[in-house]
Every structure is written in structure tokens, then in C-alpha cells.
Write a protein that binds this DNA or RNA. Sequence first.
DNA 1: CCTACAACGATTTTT
DNA 2: TCGTTGTAGG
Length: 818
Amino acid sequence: MTAQFPIPGLPTPPGADSLVDKGDESPRRRRRPSREELLEGLNEPQREAVVHEGTPLLVVAGAGSGKTRVLTRRIAWLISERDAHPGSILAITFTNKAAAEMRERVSELVGNRARIMWVSTFHSACVRILRKEIDKFGFKSSFTIYDAADSKRLMTLVCRDLDLDPKQYPPRSILNWVSNAKNELQDHEDASKDAKNGLEEKYAAAYTLYQERLRQANALDFDDLLMMTVHLFRAFPEVRETWRRRFRHVLVDEYQDTNHAQYALIHELCADSLEDPLGLSDGAGTSGGERIPPAELMVVGDADQSIYAFRGANIRNILDFEQDFPSAETILLEQNYRSTQTILTAANAVISRNDGRKPKNLWTDSGAGERIVGYVADNEHDEARFIAEEIDKLGDEGGTRPSDVAVFYRTNAQSRVFEEIFIRVGMAYKVVGGVRFYERREVRDALAYLRVLVNPDDQVSLRRILNTPKRGIGERAEACIEGLAQRDRITFWEALQKAEDAPGVASRSLNAIRGFVELIEQLQSMVDAGERADVILEQALTRSGYLKELEDSEDPQDETRVENLAELVAVAREFADDPQAGPSADPADVPDDGPPPGLRDFLERVALVADSDQIPDAPDGESAPGVVTLMTLHTAKGLEFPVVFLTGLEDGVFPHLRSLGDKPELEEERRLAYVGVTRARERLYISRAIVRSAWGAPSHNPASRFIDELPIDLVDWRRTADDQAVWSRQTYSLPQSSQRRGSLTFGTSAARADASKKASAARDIPNLDPGDRVNHDTFGLGTVVALEGMGDNSVASIDFGSEGVKRLLLRYAPVEKL
DNA sequence: CCTACAACGATTTTT
DNA sequence: TCGTTGTAGG
């Protein structure tokens, strides 16, 4: 039978939760807030949403309208006023960070009982459901979750096996296609059928093989997690009923960014009219024909902030909510508590250009505020310089702290200029996003070791570490093992274990393989013995020689890698000490079979939790000056800052080049602009550069069309294109021809190449003093902190800002004094 | 089997 | 400009 849950029926008798709650005597435990407290400070529609009962509810929440507050208050209301068991609540958030915050805030209101709510992303929730029902769909509980990078690698292998020309069939685009099919809940057979009707047959073939490989590897990719859960519910109505019975209250945040699979999942759990044609829930021995009312559903979102269509989010989900759930009611939150009227007017003006949206008008009673400041820069450096100066000025004149300021850009690559300038002027900053911790090579290598220990079927990880660090198992040997695996129909790991049966393996390689197998088996026995995740990780890194290879390396980058691995060990240690913290803290979750949960859970956490730790916490009231935050517009969703710089407003940059020809995509860009504008509380700056160097060559970009969409009187232009034109004419008096521009570019890069060649040939050791600014080929701009040694052996410690402080041997280091 | 270097290509957003 | 992939040579 399926798992038993604490609450088979509803409502839960008061006090039943003490069965689950393990005797926490903290004062917060059973807090019961008054009704007044729960409704305090809310406006009329917000209150309505909090106390709403029964029918499905759509809350259309404009930017800054306090939707997070409404969600947390409602949950507290459910628990406190309506005696809902916390375990019967499922709240879906967009990020894990948001989930943690929500759980925290609800706990503040009703006490630690809230810890047993399910507050998580769709993906985390699905993993937890799948783990409970693992026996139903033939996976081992040790399954691995493949992230985007793993999927890509696997697809690349698949394409190679199918002999697909990567030019004609790029794995990237096949993967996209497959991902879409999965989002639409088409398994590979459905998709193949479609494909044979004239669509891309090769794509379907790749899908089939890709899926087969995933199965063999005992792995699920991100799309699988959702698709499998929906399929599970459809294939086993009694399972679905169990979960429908468990979750009496379902709340979904950021509903505009749900995709079809997520929509279907909600539907399975909450739709009223789910037929039970076979009467299976009876057959499964549940309480006779008694009808289980659907869960109370509340979704919250704003169609104007839908910015994830590119990864399958379907804006229709929110637009058609009332049709999908016929009894649904809608509450509109239009009063904004975040921004000035100027900012809101600007935002409204931009977004109103989109077709087919339901009209919505944000308003505030907090006054017009400052005008928007505009700046047209000569180039991207000038833009960054202006922003740095302006932040400085705001601090001097208005007491604005760096932590009050955010700089937004469209693509991650744009952050570099800001970093360079900010380092030069000594302004503290933080880049959120970008190269993420868990995507660094060394971290992925380390995790691959752990994954293999938990799930040796995971071929992608296994082959990744097979010869990392170099241990003399090359391509040839790997191919032989692969051949053996296919011939004997065993897994790659099993083939490795009896490598001596594989024809054609050099004895040298064979020894290496034996050593590797022994290493893995030793580590596995540690896992079986229930050793802590951090200890296993450390052992894996040292015994494999991975750490040593990095430590012995001359490459200064490898020093950082060692630090990153230490960081990873620290993360694992923290997890081992307190696995209860975070998303999977549900006492009702009993570990299933399989390896000890420690390591497995750690990997699961790592796979599902993007490093939300970088996202700044809500501005603390402290006087700590903090740092300026740099991030992409996508990352900015859900955050707010007193001062916002919206940069790179150029056609081709933002809106992005690839969206210019396509109306839906352009509208998504416009929504992105809307999101950006509405992040600002008090001051908004918009800027663009006349000339921007995009991957080497400078390009001349026209103003973004979004600028023209702003009401002209709202913007105070500090510097306009006309100012720039005068400057430009004076500086470049020659008539411009494209040829000249071309040769200019060529000349510059050739000269640079020449100069760097000379520098390395002459081995000029720059004469440095502490405090000097330098430029390093890979680390960028930095400041000399200290010097040691003489002549050829002089070593400089240089602070590269976000890259950290490096010790560099000046004889080799490509540093240039500025 | 490994290293070093050259050429190439691709550059949006991410749970 | 970057990082990855392919190739040649040790």
C-alpha cells in the first residue's frame, strides 16, 4: 500500500499535530495570533484574499502590492483560525530562497508547527512525492537528478551515438525540443508519433535514446521530475487520491511562470471534476464512495511579470485560470506599497504596449517622488563610470547606502564593465548569479564522485571522474569497457568491475582501472557504513588524488579551485550537522530503503537548490553600509531596492537581439523591462551606451524602444544623444566608412596581440608598489596589496575584488601596470 | 596516453 | 573575449 500520512481526512482534529511535532518546548511553538494581528495593516482586497474560503482563488497581484505578505498571512490564518493542520498545506514558491523565507515568516506568526508545511518549489515537491512512491515506477531510490549541464552532456553523447551532424542537429536545440515535449507531458513515444507525421524524426530518435540512457543511469532530469509525477498520478488514481487527501490547501506563488506540466500537477491535486471512472479509490480500500472535496487552491501572480516563457512557462495558465477552474474567484491587488508614482506611471506606460493583457493600473498614495534620471553614455565604460559616480554622490548627499543600490543588466556578460570600474574606484559590490558555484568544474567533479557512490549506474558522472584526475585510463580503454558493457548487457560500472574480460585493454590501463574500482568500492563501503557526507567528500578528494593534483598545480586558478572545494566540504559539513534545516524538514518524511539518507539527501539538495545564498537578504535595518548589488533582470524578480540602475537600454541588448523579430518574444522583453522598473522604490536611473563592445568588435546601438515608451516628462536627461554627437564629431573628425571602422578594429586587436607577445618575450617584470592598479589577463583589474622577493622571484599579492586576493609570481603572471 | 596549441564557435534569461 | 573542441607531436 501507499504511505500513510498523519491526516487521512479533514479537518484535522485540533492537537493532532502533536503526534508529529516532536516535543519542541520553545515559546514559539504554539503561538496563536489574534485575528486582528493577522489582518493588521492589510487593505480590503488583501484581507479578502487572506480569509477567502472554499472556491479556487486567483490573486492578481501587481508589482509591489504585498503578495508575499498576503500569502504568509493566509497560511497563518489557515492554521490559526481555520484549524488546518500545517502538514496539510502545500505552498509552492518560485525559488528555494522564497520558500525558506515564507516558512520563516509563517513560523513567526504561528510558531514552530509551521515547520511541517510543505513549502518548496515544484521540483522539490515532486522529488519528495516520487521518493514516497518510488516502488510504483521502477526506479531505485538512489536515483540521481540531472541538471541542465548533465542533460546537455548526455544529449551530446546521444547525438554522437546517433551520428547526428552537430551542425545540422545541434544537441542544444534537440534538448530544447525534448524539454518542450516533456513539459507538454509527451513521453518519447507520443513525441515520436508526432515526429513521424512529418516533424523532425531525428529529434524524436534522440529523445527516445536520451530517455533510455536516463533510465539506464537511474537518473531523472528536471523535466522528468514534473512529468513523472503527473504520469504517476494519472496511472495510479489511488496514489493521486492519497495526495489529494493529504493536501487540503494548495497555494502557488508566481503562477504566471508555471509551465504546462506544473499546471497539470495542480490540476491533478485541486481540480473539482476529476472523474474516477474506474472507481479505483474504492477498490483501493479507502473509505467507501465518500467523495473527497478538492483542496482549496489559491494562486498568486501577475501576467505582466511573466518572464520565463523561454523555458516553457505558459502565460495562458494565469490568463485562463477562471476557465480552468470555473468556480474561481479573482481578487485584484493594484495598490502598490513599494514605489513612487513616477516609477509606477513609467511602468504602466511601458507595459500597456503589450497586446492582449488584462488592463491593470498600479497606483500609490505615497506621492510622485523623484524624476527618473536618464543618461546616454559614449560607451559602456562611460556608462559604468557615470553610475559609479552617481552612487557615490547619492551616498554623500542623501545618505544612500551601497546596499540600497542595485544595478540591473540584461545579460551576465554585461557585469564585467561594472566590475572593472567599481574595482578601480574602490566601490564594494556583489555580483549575484553569473558563474554559479555548483557549475564550477571542480565542484561538479567532486559531486560526480559522490553521485557515483550513491548511484553507480550514473554513467555520466562515472565517466566524468573515470580519468579525473589523470590516472591513465584513456579514450581507448573507455571504449573497450563500453563495448564490454554493451555486449554483456551490463552497466558501465559492472563492466569496469570485470575489466579483465574486456578485449583490447592495455595491461597498463587495466591496472589503472583496478585501482579506480578499488577506490570507489572503498568509498562505497564508507557510504554503506553511514559515514557523514563531508567526511566521504574529503576522503574522495584526497584518496583519488584530485586535491593533490590541484595543490601541486602552477596554475593560479587551481588555488581558487581548492578553496571552492573546501567551501563545498563546509557546505556538506553544515548539512550533515543539521539536515533538518531547509526545504526537506518534514518529520513525516521517513527515509525509504537504499543508502543512508545523508549523502543522498545532500546531493538532492545540491541539485535542486540553486545557490540562493547569494541573493541579498531583505534590507536589514542596520547601519551596515553593505555593497552594491549587480544582477540580471531575471534574477531581480521578487526583489526591491531604493535605488535602481537599469542599464544597457539599447535595441539589440535590451530588448535582446534575438527577440527583435518576434512579437511574443518582444513582449516578454517588455515584461522584463516592467519587472526592472518596478523593482525601484525611490529612484530609477536608465542608461544606454552609443557604442558598446560586444564580443570584441564595437557596435553602435540605437536607443531601446522601451525608452521611447516612457512618458517624456518623467525623465530628466542628464546627458543626451545630442551631447554625445557633438563630442563625437569633435573627436572623430574623419568621415566614417564601414571599411575604416573595420580596419580600425583590426588594427587595435592586432596591436594588442603584438604588445602582449612582446611583453612575454622580453619577460618584463613590472615594477610595482603596494597600491598600484594592475590589469591581469584572466582576473581583470586589481590592486597590489603587498610585495615579497626580489627580481625574478618577486611575488605580488593582488586584490582582484570579487576574484579574491591572489599571490602571483610576477615572472609568469600576465599583469600589466596601469 | 597526455600535453600543448590552434582553430573554432557561440554567446539570453534558469528551476 | 571566452571556453571548448580538434589535432599534432612527444
